[in-house]
Simulated scan of single mutants.
Amino acid sequence: MELEKKIRGKTAILIVLAFGLYIGFNYWNNIVAIFIKVYNLLFPFILGGCIAFILNIPARFISKKLLSCSDKGIGKIIKKHSTGISIVISFFAIVGIFVLISSIIIPNIIETAAILPKTFDNSARAFQKWMNGNTKLSNNVVNLINNMGIDWNNIFNKAKSIIFNGAGSMLLSTLAAATTLASATVEFILGVIFAIYILAQKRSLGIQFKKLLYAFMKKEKVDSILEILKLTNLTFSNFITGQCIVAAILGIMFFIIMMLLSMPYALMISVLICSLSIIPVLGSAIGCSLGVILILMVNPIKAGVFLIVFLLIKQIEDNFIYPKVVGESVGLPAIWVLVAITLGGKISGVAGMIIFIPMFSVAYVLLRKEVYIRLKGKDLEIK
């Protein structure tokens, strides 16, 4: 009887699986279209959940500080409304940071774009003059270059055309992105409102969620799910906090060294590297590339010095700062960090790079725990 029940159960699973595969192979495009429509419909709420998670990190810290206030006078009022006050402070702090970063980067980019044609022409003339008047080059090399019939003016004009055409395309792309951003403003506002509601009622929502799970599932399974969710929340929070701290440290280090070396665009490039360093591994490299291009237009020698400075600071970050600040909190070996970044970038771009590291960390911790339990059950010790 027990055997027949098991066979019926497995048969039912196979039938459902076969039906699912049939639907998937034959109606894949329709299924994807439905998922996209559902995603677009729920996007403001998904965005609100993401905003709530990010806001909750500083809000939780601020709320703890507010709860330590006195029980008398103004302290009593602060403690009573600590949740609301912490949400408001966190929201305006994050908005203020974005506004500050934009006010530093955008005007400098506009100014650089305005002087770029003149700088390019001056650099081209200086380079051509150096080529014509440099006596250190071997006569044979000069003759060889001349015999090749290289038209330097034509080369510079083509390079100039390519750069400015690319700049025009970039400008159009920026305008298109700005238009898309403007059309998504309503969704963003809805997401922010939803995030504030989540944070304001997170305690009651958490209790309702637990009641729902315990009502329809076994206690052991619910305990396991809640443990995984707690681990996930802790890992994501530690990762985001660690990335922000590392980014701030890098920005400060670059600013101090660039100011000491009297490099152009010191503040802008430092803020740019700080902002992009939120993206693990690749962010600071992108910031470095942009910094080299900007400095190169003003002073090619200092661009080379900046590149050397970046490589030195990057070594300090990789060997001392990142392992101490982020590595210990996430607990993911370097090779899996690289795998997480690669897969995340392929699937979801920059957002995937940021999300996949803590996701891999959670999976790594859970898998390691399960492996140790199974090895202990088999009385095995692998060295």
Rank of each mutant, 00 (worst) to 15 (best):
I245S: 07
N140W: 13
S204C: 06
S63T: 04
R60Y: 05
P323F: 00
I89A: 00
I23S: 10
G168T: 13
I13E: 13
T11Y: 06
Y27R: 07
A124Y: 13
I106K: 11
K302A: 04
G327N: 01
A126I: 02
Y214S: 12
R203A: 11
E328W: 01
Q315V: 12
D151H: 09
N139A: 15
G304Q: 02
L366H: 06
K6A: 11
A363W: 02
M353V: 00
I115E: 14
I87C: 03
T174A: 12
I145Y: 14
K10Q: 09
I150E: 07
N30E: 15
K65Q: 14
K378D: 09
L276F: 00
G251K: 11
N132D: 14
N30K: 11
S82K: 08
K314P: 00
V186I: 10
G349E: 00
A340L: 00
K202E: 05
S361A: 11
P107M: 09
K324W: 09
A124D: 07
G287P: 08
A285Q: 14
D318W: 03
F127P: 07
A18L: 10
C50E: 15
P333E: 00
G349F: 00
G49K: 02
A113M: 13
L213P: 03
A33T: 06
K369E: 07
S138V: 11
M131Y: 12
I273D: 01
P300D: 01
G48Q: 00
I301K: 14
L307M: 13
I155Q: 07
G166H: 06
I105F: 00
T241Y: 02
Q201A: 12
S270G: 13
F164E: 10
V365L: 08
N122L: 04
N108D: 13
N134Q: 03
L226C: 01
V292Y: 08
A159Q: 12
M253N: 09
S275M: 13
I279F: 06
I85E: 10
K346G: 06
A93D: 03
G283Q: 03
I109M: 14
Q315C: 08
L267C: 03
F209L: 06
F209G: 04
A266W: 01
H81Q: 14
F320G: 02
T174C: 13
L296D: 07
M258G: 05
I240P: 00
V88S: 09
V325F: 00
N154F: 07
F35A: 10
V305R: 12
